[in-house]
């Protein structure tokens, strides 16, 4: 092995870095959007579903690519505004200050309280949940459970699940007295599954999937309405949210085709498989 081959290697490194410097990867999506590629970014709750829908869309419309990136609902909306993404995903309704954007709901999801399966508590009133999260109730005995201290699981800042939860219970994040702060739904479910005295809130879709696959958690009803896909679909479950595809201008061309496809009955089975509630009876 000669040193010249090593030198050539070093040269290659320089050339590649030069190329990356001239055409930085973070500028690629803009270039792609002009072709037959759809860039979709945003909510981590929606990303698995939308990428499944995207895969089916690609097989039905050959030659088109659907790229799904996650980063939270706020990122999805910001990317749709700046044009960094063709479609943004937001797992909440558009806010009044976002009214200039165009939202298309593709499914509904609910957020519910989860407890460990061994916790004897079967129902909590809104006030009790509120008191547990603010630290007024610190023992399960108070709400008819075992004599054990509560373990309050809260979400990290910036997640739309947190926003919705706070809004529903009329709380500020500062009021919450949490013992654990978690990132995604799965981490929350693992935390609750590992501690019989924990209380947490997660997306019904993820929780129901895990509960039916042997994870020891229980979904609590909210205001006496059971947390299931059916109640979310009927619109009777109190804490639910629309899964929205957001665009900067009225959907047209390939973007419109994709949104129509996601809303149509052709993707109902994919939505149900992810334990979300599709728009119409499918």
């Amino acid at each position: 092995m000669g040193f010249s081959s090593f030198f050539i290697f070093a040269l290659r490194v320089i050339l590649i870095s030069h190329f990356l410097w001239t055409f930085p990867p973070w500028e690629y999506p803009i270039a792609r959007a002009e072709g037959t590629r759809l860039i979709i970014s945003g909510s981590s709750t929606m990303a698995p579903l939308v990428s499944e829908i995207g895969k089916r869309f690609e097989t039905l419309h050959p030659g088109n690519r659907v790229d799904v990136q996650t980063g939270g609902s706020s990122r999805g909306i910001a990317d749709a505004v700046t044009g960094l993404a063709d479609i943004g995903m937001a797992s909440r309704a558009l806010k009044p200050q976002e009214a200039h954007l165009f939202g298309s709901v593709i499914a509904y999801d609910g957020i519910t309280i989860i407890l460990h399966r061994d916790n004897p508590v079967k129902f909590l009133t809104d006030v009790q949940i509120r008191d547990m999260y603010t630290g007024t109730i610190t023992n399960w005995k108070t709400v008819g459970g075992n004599d054990a201290p509560t373990l309050v699981v809260n979400k990290a800042e910036g997640r739309s699940t947190l926003e919705l939860f706070l809004h529903f219970f009329n709380l500020q994040n500062r009021d919450i007295h949490a013992h654990v702060v978690i990132g995604d739904n799965e981490q929350g479910i693992k935390t609750v599954a590992g501690n019989p005295h924990a209380i947490g809130y997660v997306s019904i879709g993820t929780a129901q999937y895990d509960a039916t696959h042997g994870i020891p958690i229980r979904l609590l009803p909210l205001q006496h309405i059971p947390a299931t896909i059916e109640t979310v679909r009927k619109g009777t479950f109190p804490l639910s949210r629309p899964l929205t595809l957001v665009t900067n201008s009225p959907p047209a061309g390939l973007i419109k085709t994709f949104i129509d496809f996601a809303q149509s009955s052709q993707s109902h089975d994919l939505i149900l498989k992810q334990y979300f509630a599709p728009l119409q009876e499918g």
Partner: peptide, 12 residues
Amino acid sequence: IALEMGYALGDH
């Protein structure tokens, strides 16, 4: 950083 980076915008 790991908890909030994916969801942070602007000054955050």
